[in-house]
Design a protein around this nucleic acid. Sequence first.
DNA 1: TTGTAAGCGTTATCAG
DNA 2: CTGATAACGCTTACAA
Lengths: 373, 373
Amino acid sequence: MATIRDVAREAGVSIATVSRVINHSPRVSDEARRRVEAAAKLLDYWPNSAARSLHTRRHNLLGILLPDLHGGFFSEIIRGIDEEARRAHFQILISSSHANSLAMLAAVRAMRGRIDCLIAMAPERESMETVTRTDHRFPVVLLNPFGNPSGFNSVAISNREGARALVSHLIETGHQRIAMLSGPQTNGDASERLEGYRDALNLAGIHPDPALVIVGDFREDSGYQLAERVLDLDPRPTAVFAANDQMAIGLVSALREAEIAVPESIAVAGFDDTMIAGYISPPLTTVRVDPHALGRAAVAMALKVISNPNDLSTTRELVPTTLVVRRSCGCSTNSAHQVRVSRRTRQPVSNSSSEPVNPAPGAGFETASWEEK
Amino acid sequence: MATIRDVAREAGVSIATVSRVINHSPRVSDEARRRVEAAAKLLDYWPNSAARSLHTRRHNLLGILLPDLHGGFFSEIIRGIDEEARRAHFQILISSSHANSLAMLAAVRAMRGRIDCLIAMAPERESMETVTRTDHRFPVVLLNPFGNPSGFNSVAISNREGARALVSHLIETGHQRIAMLSGPQTNGDASERLEGYRDALNLAGIHPDPALVIVGDFREDSGYQLAERVLDLDPRPTAVFAANDQMAIGLVSALREAEIAVPESIAVAGFDDTMIAGYISPPLTTVRVDPHALGRAAVAMALKVISNPNDLSTTRELVPTTLVVRRSCGCSTNSAHQVRVSRRTRQPVSNSSSEPVNPAPGAGFETASWEEK
DNA sequence: TTGTAAGCGTTATCAG
DNA sequence: CTGATAACGCTTACAA
């Protein structure tokens, strides 16, 4: 456990000189540099990051706050984050699956003094409000946040555009009566996908029938259970758009058990293009989201924010989605695997100073403010 | 950005008292405690973790070193790690996908002064040697290491036992001539699974025929390509054990294209029980490894090491595997979904002080010792 | 029970 | 180009 003092003594120089060598300062004689390097090797000296960060206030560390770590989606986000971070010699500090916003806040607190920027995924309204409170401790980039929060940098999936493209495809291939298996409306992705569904219908001059929207909970079992309600619709829809692949898969298996042919009797489509989507039978038409790109984009934005600390403008970036046509929608153009790609957009949003981030007076006082345990 | 001094001033006490309140010292008057708490809330004070760890040398942070973040396996390991870590109020610092051992070493260096223990996955021989060098900077727990390194705490998959159980099952259901699609022999999992395969044959009195072992690279395409070599074997094997599910899946699709019925003409089994294994057709018989449990076990061990800093003995723990029988092996007992579970074992191994960890003299000198960029 | 002061291991500002 | 030395924000003897 050699420290900088040990190295200085060994090299016969002052600690300042050792520090300069370590930090590649040009103001060091070759002779001194040589001796410091030799001493550092001899003692196998590793600088102490905590001491260094304490003084420089730089950490080369990105804090990542996720609701959960489950499933391929999250693992791909993390991989994207890690990949992009490493290119800039940053490491990542992950904290996930917090039972409530107090636990979440405690996790963020523990990051104080260690991270340069926080990347927070807050798909629900409640978690958004929690993240809001962390403001001003370090910069924040939101990952796929609930709603369209102004005053924050964010990176999100183009849910609405993806859903619109998918449903438009269904309409173009002849479907008029299209049901939607929606996700929970407290979830941002779910509500945006529902909007996209409505957009497509409106664009085609079809009046969205509220009876055709059935609310599920994003899980496979939910899709399975709700098949009954889909079949009870009168007249029966010719296609169902599930807000994610898991529900679509549950729906397909329920339909198979009921001996209703997919796609001949009812076409089915999902969203996400999970690993399994291409393996089930029939292979699922869906919208590919690229969680890896999402992670990378978030880090790219975080790095930009870090390097421009006095630029207070905020940006919202949308990561494009891709329509993936497979057999479950029953269209004839199966050769065209990827039909449409939504454009990558980048739009400036309002400056954070123009609007109070947390309007509730004294909101920061509701929980102990420095408490850790 | 209030510091402890601001809180002290606001509360009209010394910084020592503030520190005592924060750290729940009992030696504080109720009155002082009250005022400090009020001041902390008012100023929204968050302690600086770097400053704190610099002094206490505790960080509540686990360093995680992984070769890759790809796939469900790694994501489940991380989830297990995160879950168990959070129970103890630890966060995790992840670094993965290092192109070479220099990059790996740099990543570990950056953790100096920030983590309490390193959990390192080093499935290849080269990465093991790198990890070896980090010793004495902080305690290390190896995750599924190559070989059976003495002098290190480790948690591993019971590959050999799992493979043995699977192949024994194949033998019990009538197969005598069983080929193996092995993984790369530089990989610890691959070689252990091969050992298990040999064990089962020997136990049944079948002499292992080297010609029946075909070496692949763990990827799906490899299984697909090597189908040809399997079919060229004379006499043709009645069953093939692939060292992981991906190769098994590739093999199955090649066999389907060659119109060879699975399991009727050739039975196939894999290893890992990945997500897809149950979804392909026929559903794949395989060995379930529980990466989530692996992650949790590693953290549990790390926490134990941290809390007993002067206990230098080391432990090797094996996380059990489960035989999962599905249709692809063609046995009749499909009702018995999970047939056999290997026992969880825990064995003491030699003490680290008895054997030099890094025998190469001056090995630490081959790379710059404190260099970061 | 409280305060003073000495570090923890760095970086960075000065003089020299 | 180099060396003292004062921070950085906190914890913890030691004294009071």
